[in-house]
Design a protein around this nucleic acid. Structure first.
Lengths: 103, 103
DNA sequence: TCACTAGTTCGATCGTCATCGTACTACGAT
DNA sequence: ATCGTAGTACGATGACGATCGAACTAGTGA
């Protein structure tokens, strides 16, 4: 089945501006919250979003390139996982703070 | 001298999307870092920025309306202060995480 | 009163990006 | 092989926002 990890920045390549800009978009923040609720990873299509599939793919790419999430293939599906460890190492408390928002 | 506080959202009116969007802009992040280094407040013009005065005013307004900083008049000057307490109460760890970034 | 200084506001411009539809790729099942 | 499903890539469009200059406001000091 040869799962494959999609290209993403190394931990030391992650820039805080990119992370914040990625998180500062409502749809993407929804995605991040969904990923936070599912540490095992989520299939992109499972997250309910008010946008089409192509827009969804665009946001996932943005989040991946910013270093917020990691994506690996699983057959025809793509599983995304929040890069908690990396983000916590770089910006301790940031993720927790964001997720603690009462929305 | 009657200093006056410029209009800003109450703590419970602050939205995490607005905060993250405000912080996800390089110039504004520079401003926030400068404010973090000066808990007593900073006069807008003192922060070295690669933009004109009007753009600077625009960014300060954005940050104020997002609830990131507070501004009060002091004669002809305007002093801005990071709303650390409010942000820490709403999103504990967020600010610390961002500021701990090695840039 | 009359400048001078600090800063805002307004309108215009320009770039970026969120969104969409369509076409495409890749995997799985029949 | 063929079809269906999951998702991406591309090109176009429209909206938002970063930027600027110019005009304006307000406080300070001569």
């Amino acid at each position: 089945m040869a799962t494959k990890v999609l290209p993403q920045p190394e931990r030391e390549e992650i820039r805080v501006e990119a992370v914040l800009q990625a998180l500062g978009e409502p749809v993407r923040l929804t995605i991040v919250r969904a990923l936070a609720d599912n540490p095992a990873g989520v299939c992109c299509g499972e997250i309910e979003l008010p946008v089409t599939a192509s827009t969804r793919a665009h946001h996932l790419k943005t989040l991946r390139e910013a270093g917020v999430l990691s994506t690996h293939t699983d057959g025809t599906r793509r599983i995304s996982i929040l890069r908690r460890e990396d983000l916590e190492a770089l910006y301790p408390g940031l993720l927790t703070g964001i997720l603690s928002a009462k929305q």
